[in-house]
Design a protein around this nucleic acid. Sequence first.
DNA 1: CTGAAAGCGCTTACAG
DNA 2: CTGAAAGCGCTTACAG
Lengths: 336, 336
Amino acid sequence: MSQAKKKITLKDVAAHTGLSVNTVSRVLNKKPYYTKEVEDKVTQACRELGYIADRNASGLRSGSTRTIAIVFDDLVNPFYSFTTDILSRIFEENGYNTIIFSNNARSPYVDNDLIRSVLSRKPDGILSFLEPAEDTVGFIRESGIPFVIFGRDGTPYGMRGVDADEEFGGRLAGEHLLSRGYRNLAYIGSWHDVKVCLDRQHGFAEAAGDALDGSHIFYIRETDFDAIADKLVADKVDGLFCFNDIIAFVMIDALERRGLRMGEDYGIVGYDNIQQMLRMPRMLTTIDVGVTEFAHAGAAVMLEMLTDEDLTPRLPFKDTHVSVLVEGKSTPRKGW
Amino acid sequence: MSQAKKKITLKDVAAHTGLSVNTVSRVLNKKPYYTKEVEDKVTQACRELGYIADRNASGLRSGSTRTIAIVFDDLVNPFYSFTTDILSRIFEENGYNTIIFSNNARSPYVDNDLIRSVLSRKPDGILSFLEPAEDTVGFIRESGIPFVIFGRDGTPYGMRGVDADEEFGGRLAGEHLLSRGYRNLAYIGSWHDVKVCLDRQHGFAEAAGDALDGSHIFYIRETDFDAIADKLVADKVDGLFCFNDIIAFVMIDALERRGLRMGEDYGIVGYDNIQQMLRMPRMLTTIDVGVTEFAHAGAAVMLEMLTDEDLTPRLPFKDTHVSVLVEGKSTPRKGW
DNA sequence: CTGAAAGCGCTTACAG
DNA sequence: CTGAAAGCGCTTACAG
């Protein structure tokens, strides 16, 4: 097997054509002022030599790496992977590569270590599924790099965000469970200090009214699934709303191990509709934000910031799209 | 909002400490020869100034970008996202960032455009879920860059691969369906020219024997789901083996629309056990390769190639791990 | 329309 | 143990 072939650089292409590196560079970047003849010569030489431009080198000089960083805490959740898939394809189409970062689930925030790691790659923009930690907000803003918070409200941080109406989603879940006859409800959230989680909770609580007792609000980062399940069984809770579908699945499993069957002994509503992303049968009743449009909205904001198009007040996603409840088998009419 | 703060470079740190950029660089990279005093001064200055090294610049000079490219065709499939999540975390722990590339599902191969895009980022290594296209194999090998084919056999390309025993998995599926009483079987593959797909098919065919008629072997890239479902119904097929879980889910849906219920009118086996990755209830019977160990094996090979550790003949994944069949509700004993 | 020089922010030899 | 110079592969002014 032949060893690492000599790397072909602009200089080689220049030598091969008898032109200067400057001219070759100009042709490749389609800058004005060169003859068709020169263009052909360059194109030909690049093909012959198998020239591939070094994007890192060009980034260093030009100040733009044509790279976008995506930050998340858990690529396993299809909500993130589905969105990341769409985003990276759109970025690619626009000449940007995607570099991914995760937070090791240390916290639901972009902390200092993480942002430093991201910035060391000099991306042209950062799209984060996580909110910035208190002490990184100023740092990020001062860096001047476009930062989009995806799926969360950016205003508290003075940043751009692309978010959906989470309270509305929570309300849908609450109304649905009530309308199906469930009367003793619970909410299983993720982190007690994450806004999305609280928004869904508040919407749900508002709709649920007396049916949701304060002692039936849980956060999986504080109470483990088994403890939650035990409490639900003990208190004869009959309707669950979970922060996302994965949490719902885990609860279904935990309750099954206690002899309770989904859609028979209790009703349950999730969030995200990952079943559809995976083309699975509709089993779980869930809230669907329209993830494809959501991702496209996020990409649009990012590209808008990158190209400095004037940020004319287009209506944000939140105001133009509305979540819907998709019914599965997990919330049949209760009793009668 | 303050505008882009002046970027802090090594030069600034040098000026601030009264040292040369060289010395500062040496301290930051922990090269030998500097006093504790100098080290403290540098550390202090970096903190004060908020210095973040430019990894692209260092990569340009040093020849190593500390970047690994991961190539896939569909991040939505949890098999890929789960694996990518693990891989990127392991790479991160070892000082490498991950840059992702997808093929736009143009083909199941790494084609010329794709590899050029990847190489332009000068990654230290490439881990691909896709096999290289015929005409890119030579190019990739000549580039000298470590290339690991994940989930596929690398030997036909003279490359390193990390693969599982796919025929064995296919056999498990076939034996299971037979043992449950299904007698008229079908295989739903992905691409007819992808080795993994064929390996599973061959293992399955071997176990199925006469129960698998040649006309009941399909590839979803050639025949659409509805056409497949129609044929299955017409021929009263009672047992399905699908290339992966997602294909299985789509088939279940297509058959349901034709009035056939999974686990009642027919049995079905998938591949990958994505249910477990998503912590979902065990519904589908499926083949599980042990994706966590699989991902770790892939990372190990990649890191091994990067650090040039001698490639002592450790047993490859295929020879040390064996897939298992995980039973769900989709393959109950038939009839009696 | 094309070229020679400078420089992006680092690290790598090489001096001292 | 530390520093001055050169250079990684490009693009950006600036000349001509």
